[in-house]
Design a binder for these strands. Structure first.
Length: 469
RNA sequence: GGGGCCGUGGGGUAGCUUGGUAUCCUUGCUGGUUUGGGACCGGCCGACCGCAGUUCAAAUCUGCGCGGCCCCA
């Protein structure tokens, strides 16, 4: 039972592979999912990486409640307008109707800033930089897809207050860099960074920086975001303080988040027709040992396999000594799950003091002396990472096309690619592009040259457009 | 917002037109022989989305509900 073909039918392949690799099960409520150990452990790898980066930068972890009173959520008008359609409400406790209904957090700006306003009195209280690892609920109405669009998901959300806009700006850039490293160095996924349009930016932000990439079906996907909130929240929430000149001023704020959507992006981009391919640095188990057992010759092989497992402990090795399954079956099992390297050891290898080492990304097999195994694994894991990254990078680069007219943009997008165009920045033009080509505005950078491909006006953005998740 | 398609064991399916014992694959459990690329033989567990109607009899026909998918705006 081979997997569905990834190229010709991506969405069926995706649904199938995440089930076969035992990543999730569906929850009883539409749009919810159970993250099983195979996917949760990858999330833990991301958590470990991001958390240590945040902490090294001086961010502390905290936890705020998931229930947000309606009047708090409503304090910033753009914010509530943006999130209102997707908020899930708690209205009852048992049979008693609550006096004020409670939102289940779709994001935590409002509940955190309510507390921040109490805590911040002086310039000495700043900067305040807190992060939390939590679940959020956004009641999406588009059809759900595991990881990519779920009504409940896990993420970290960082929320900071600075005395000056400059400091806040610097933090947004820094967080975007950390996210970029997470994608590129940990997950082997190339991304492009840019500013969201006024329409697409976070509800209540002055500007949003996003990282985006392309999925195998040619649709772009927003992979994470960092927002500069200006004083849009600090004013209604009264986050103010006495500065060094004894003047009462409002704080400058950011928020930034990275969610379990990233897992879906990773499974989708790296997987192949055999199943998942987990990038080595994020793989909870980097190596699997499959002993080849012949009747009557099991003992020495198992002994050697166990010794290998012990000596390669730092790679979190799995030893597949299940009885009653053929070696071929085991190979396939681990290929579906995407373990980066497989070691095969049989009687022949024990005799020769060697093993067969197989890469998941290319399928290439080599025979290695046990004495050289550790150093070979180390260099192969590095090579697998860069090979996976390069492959994805090439795909992304080939999928971005500079265009100079609307018809060109339409053509590029219909071919499953992302178009890059000069754009005047007007929301009206953005709507027109969406309507005529089906392409959404992704992100882009400010420019002072070029002319808008739609109306010829001076461009303010060099912007990416594409079909999008 | 408009239109179309579909709900059958854990997963994938046949059966529905023409109402009558629910098919096959796979997973899982189990016993044995195996094991260098998804082993084989035997045994077992497991399903017609819900409600109402028509009928001697409904997975099949009708209505409503719930759920899923696709296309268009």
């Amino acid at each position: 039972m081979a997997l569905k073909n990834k190229k010709s039918n991506f969405s069926e392949w995706y649904t199938e592979v995440i089930q076969k690799a035992d990543l999730i099960d569906y929850g009883p409520v539409s749009g919810t999912m159970i993250m099983k150990p195979n996917s949760y452990s990858v999330w833990e790898s991301i958590q470990n990486y991001l958390d240590s980066r945040f902490k090294r930068d001086g961010v502390k972890n905290a936890y705020f409640p998931m229930f947000i009173p309606e009047k708090l959520l409503k304090k910033e008008s753009k914010h509530v307008a943006g999130f209102a359609p997707e908020v899930a409400w708690v209205t009852h406790a048992g049979k008693t109707k609550l006096k004020e209904r409670l939102a289940i957090r779709p994001t935590s700006e409002t509940i955190m800033y309510d507390a921040y306003s109490k805590w911040i009195r002086s310039w000495k209280d700043l900067p305040l930089r807190l992060n939390q690892w939590v679940n959020v609920v956004r009641w999406e109405f588009k059809h759900p897809t595991p990881f990519l669009r779920t009504r409940e998901f896990l993420w970290q959300e960082g929320h900071s207050v600075f005395a000056t806009k400059e400091e806040a700006d610097r933090e947004v850039a820094k967080m975007s860099k950390i996210y970029r490293d997470t994608y590129e160095k940990l997950m082997a996924i190339p991304v492009f960074e840019g500013l969201k349009s006024e329409k697409e930016r976070f509800a209540g932000a002055d500007y949003s920086i996003s990282l985006e990439t392309i999925m195998p079906d040619g649709k772009a996907i927003q992979s994470c975001t960092a927002h500069h909130l200006g004083q849009n929240f600090s004013k209604p929430f009264k986050i103010n303080f006495l500065d060094k000149n004894e003047k009462r001023v409002y704080g400058w704020q950011n928020s930034w988040g990275f969610s379990t959507r990233s897992l879906g992006v990773m499974f989708a981009i790296h997987g192949d027709d055999k199943g998942l391919v987990i990038p080595p640095r994020i793989a909870p188990n980097k190596v699997v040992i499959v002993p080849i057992l012949f009747k009557g010759k099991e003992e020495p092989v198992l002994k050697a396999a166990n010794a290998l497992k012990k000596s390669l402990n730092k790679y979190s090795v799995i030893l597949d000594d299940r009885k009653g399954y053929s070696a071929g079956r085991k190979f396939n099992d681990w290929e579906v799950r995407g373990i980066p390297l497989r070691i095969e050891i049989g009687p022949r290898d024990v005799q020769n003091k060697s093993v067969v080492l197989v890469r998941r990304d290319t399928g290439v097999k080599i025979t290695v002396k046990i004495s050289k195994l550790d150093t070979t694994i180390l260099s192969l894991l590095k090579e697998i990472h860069s090979n996976m990254y390069d492959r994805a990078k090439k795909k992304l680069t080939n999928s971005i096309v500079n265009v100079s007219s609307l018809s060109e943009l339409k053509k590029v997008v219909s071919e499953g690619k992302i178009a890059r165009a000069y754009w005047c920045g007007s929301s009206k033009v953005e709507d027109e592009i969406k309507k005529k080509t089906g392409a959404k505005s992704l992100n882009g950078e400010f420019v002072k040259t070029g002319k808008c491909i739609v109306n010829g006006k001076p461009a303010t953005y060099r912007h990416y457009f594409g079909k999008s998740y």
